[in-house]
């Protein structure tokens, strides 16, 4: 798959296969094309060349059905500051046609530990609380595939623990997770496979189990230095 923006080719010859239930972490320097690849995979922008299949379906086929299978956690929370936590979750729950949405809100809000702040406006939340609510927003429709774009940015230890627990639960439920991160330790610890993207190309792929943190750092610095 190739993605060109204007005259610049941002993603070059991307050939990537992710198994259902696999947890993949994508590392790379700023400007490597990580977010653009995420935008293609989440159907926010089409590829310029090649095909993308999600859950065995072409992304051009029935994008609305595919979007229902996806959840996205980004460093941006996608939350409305003037709405309460409950209203935000109700809004997104309705957008994703979540059945019995009020019951589901109770479940996900408990999962991220915000049940006592449910009726507070989101603008009064700390960064960590907002990110926890963003996690609840992303999983309210019980997605098969979760995309994470630098989810640890600005999180306190408590929020990191909750995010890790949510990811662990999803992994145990055989959900597919695709995470962009600059946090080598989290990436290596949580995922099944590590991918390094440099200048729009996948330059390295390996099983996380076969790598130590020091090895990964050495490989990353070497590959980024070469570019």
């Amino acid at each position: 798959m190739v993605k060109t923006i204007g005259s610049k080719t941002v993603l070059k010859d991307i050939n990537l296969h992710i198994e259902p239930g696999e947890f993949v972490s994508v590392l790379g320097p700023n400007g490597a094309g990580k977010t653009t690849l995420l935008k293609v995979l989440t159907l926010l922008t089409p590829p310029s060349e090649g095909q993308v299949y999600i859950a065995g379906q072409k992304i051009t086929g029935n994008p609305l059905a595919l979007r229902k299978k996806m959840g996205v956690i980004s460093h941006n929370t996608f939350l409305y500051g003037n709405l309460t936590a409950y209203e935000n979750l109700l809004f997104y729950g309705r957008m994703y046609d979540v059945p019995n949405v009020r019951q589901r809100i109770k479940e996900v809000i408990a999962e991220v530990g915000l049940q006592y702040s449910l009726n507070d406006p989101v603008r009064t939340f700390s960064r960590g609380m907002q990110q926890r609510l963003a996690i609840a927003r992303a999983i309210i429709h019980d997605p098969d595939i979760l995309f994470l774009d630098e989810p640890y940015t600005g999180l306190d230890q408590h929020a990191i623990g909750i995010l890790n627990q949510v990811l662990l639960n999803l992994t145990n439920q055989n959900r597919t997770i695709y995470m962009i991160t600059h946090n080598f330790e989290q990436g290596l610890h949580m995922s099944d496979r590590i991918i390094i993207l440099v200048s729009g190309r996948i330059v390295y792929e390996a099983s996380s189990k076969s790598l130590s943190l020091e090895e990964l750092q050495d490989i990353y610095l070497k590959l980024v230095g070469e570019s």
């Binding site: 980004s74 941006n76 996608f78």
Partner: peptide
């Protein structure tokens, strides 16, 4: 644009 909520809308399964 605040908190990129427009992206949140665009990611939702809605025309």
């Amino acid at each position: 644009k605040q908190n990129e909520t427009l992206l949140g809308l665009m990611l939702a399964p809605v025309d």
